[in-house]
Write a protein that binds this DNA or RNA. Structure first.
Lengths: 233, 233
DNA sequence: TTAGCACAACCTGTACACAGCATGTGTTCT
DNA sequence: AGAACACATGCTGTGTACAGGTTGTGCTAA
């Protein structure tokens, strides 16, 4: 019952006075993170009854969550088979990154958000976390990338833009994480620190356009680095 | 049982050998169109049991459809109240149009689709349909606008871009249709014909970049014309 | 041995009953 | 008269049983 006792295996401890919407959001975020952090790598078959048992609810709320994940493009529900974590073909992956680059540039153009000291402090925290990252700790690296994305979302004033940026981030993040282990760790960390440094400088100048540009350049860099390890069909 | 007997009121005649997915798509498209063509204007309360009765299914598939519509931002599901067709506040409306303009420009930049003679013929058909439109026939005008959007989707090679363009089109289309009756009919038709003419010229030149630009300019024109009739809070 | 087929085991899809929630309405008390 | 409250009524949320679909497996027969 208490949060002190950490279960041996994965287990969702439900808060006591939790409303229906909160429970839905909790399970959704949990499954989304498991997919994005590769706990469930692409191809994994999820069972509604198994998830229902784990989260101690019936299949009905689980189905709602899975259908939302399907809408987000993270899973594919097949009748009689199961819910399969989506993979992305190379073409769609590249197209998505190209689109994300353009969307990132728009952060500074379409009703940019307000920059506060909290944002700068968060950037500094991300830098520290990145620097103190043990070698080849891909999972924590992914978490930092997730938090950086959240920070940038917070800086995006246009609600529709923010929404679609997040949508495509979650859709391709796990694929990028998949390739992470094939890349040079030092380069990856250096690239991440460079982006954080550029973002911080842009934020200090209150230049949201520069923020969007820095993000766009970073995405381009990622795609280029991954491109080396992808063989064309 | 037979399709010959057309029911007096709206009724969905289910094809015989229809699979589950097809039925879902059919009901989804039907309700989406009813919302976008203002059969269900913003604020309308939809009842799951009523819809289930009309489409002759149980609440379960209807709920799936309504939740997908909620993901698309067309309805808002409130516990204990009902499913309410969404309205859009002015700020979000403008932000969405700004984003749509930028996305339209990307049609010609991110892996543009192939132009065929069918596209030109479809454009010509849309021109004829627009010209033969009776005055103040907003509903058929909306249908033409829908078909034009479908045509442009078909010309968008990048799957992610196409997806998000459609998403935001469906989200704001009905709001634009709402203001339609307040605008000058002749101007509206002229604007539509101008866009079709520009698109046709761009397609003949095989210039997808010009297609995107024409669409973007058209969206800007729409927003400007509507802006005159909107009072700032 | 191997190709073919029937079946069992698992999955999601559907229908329905019931619980929980929001809201309008009628009553009652001041 | 007016305000406050209890309740009836409608809605969506949830749980559960069953129907329909898919796939792997093992038996059977050539």
């Amino acid at each position: 019952m208490s949060d002190l006792a950490e279960p041996a295996v994965k287990q969702a401890s439900a808060p006591k006075g939790e409303t229906g919407v909160e429970r839905f959001e909790r399970i959704h975020a949990e499954l989304r993170d498991r997919i994005c952090l590769l706990t469930y790598p692409p191809g994994t078959v999820l069972s509604e009854v198994a998830l229902a048992k784990e989260f101690d609810v019936s299949r009905t709320p689980i189905r709602r969550v899975l259908h939302k994940l399907e809408f987000m493009g993270l899973v594919e529900i097949k009748n009689g088979v199961g819910t399969i974590v989506s993979d992305i073909d190379l073409m769609t992956f590249k197209e998505t990154y190209s689109l994300r680059m353009r969307l990132a540039e728009l952060i500074g153009e379409l009703s940019p958000g307000r920059i506060t000291v909290e944002h700068l402090e968060e950037i500094d925290r991300l830098v520290e976390r990145t620097k103190s990252l043990p070698r080849e700790n891909f999972r924590d690296y992914a978490r930092i990338a997730n938090d950086l994305q959240t920070l940038l979302s917070d800086l995006t004033g246009s609600a529709p833009l923010r929404e679609v940026i997040e949508l495509f981030y979650f859709r391709v993040a796990r694929i990028w994480f998949t390739y992470l282990s094939q890349l040079d760790w030092e380069d990856t960390v250096a690239s991440q620190l460079a982006e954080l440094s550029e973002l911080r400088a842009a934020l200090e100048c209150n230049d949201m356009r520069a923020v969007g540009q820095a993000r766009s350049v970073h995405l381009h860099r990622i795609l280029t680095r991954i491109g080396r390890f992808i063989v064309e069909p």
